[in-house]
């Protein structure tokens, strides 16, 4: 049809606290934050643990998990996503702790269910910045 370029999708703008997460994704690895006091694990949206500890360390995660909830999106927020409609957004519960908002790719949208086992795959979206996506395990 026309050769209007598809605009770029929004990509993360890592800050000091989250850069190691996105950098690991660019290398095909998933990292979580872990509390050095109680061992709780979470995604890097947290900078302190509920136990009161503020000393968090990075730990490697397997990238495996299950679909906690999902939706098949038929109306995109931005023209960058229009070519992929309909696409699946899911909250993935990681087996190593914490949950991530992401997409489930590599399968039909109607194959996604709550509880579906998934594993992380990674897309590099910028210099040292990757994002985790998930595909049926």
């Amino acid at each position: 049809m026309s050769d209007t370029p598809i605009p770029a999708k929004p990509s993360p703008s890592p800050g000091d606290a989250t850069a190691p997460f996105w950098a690991a994704c660019a290398e095909g690895r998933l990292r979580l934050r872990a509390c050095t006091a109680c061992g709780a694990r979470f995604t890097p949206t947290r900078a302190a643990c509920g136990c009161g500890c503020t000393r968090l360390e990075w730990v490697e995660a397997s990238g495996r998990g299950t679909v906690f909830s999902y939706t098949v999106v038929h109306r995109a927020p931005d023209p960058a996503f229009r070519a992929e409609l309909p696409y699946v957004i899911a909250i993935v519960a990681l087996e190593d702790g914490g949950r991530l908002m992401s997409n489930v790719i590599g399968c039909a949208a109607d194959a996604v269910r709550i509880g579906l086992p998934v594993r992380a795959v990674y897309e590099t979206v910028g210099e040292g910045v990757g994002v985790p996506k998930f595909t049926p395990a």
Partner: peptide, 22 residues
Amino acid sequence: TDDWEDPFGLTVPGKYALVAQR
């Protein structure tokens, strides 16, 4: 831009849909 939601194309109806599905 929200780093944890916008790269995946999440919409406001999509957020409520995730709650509804659950």
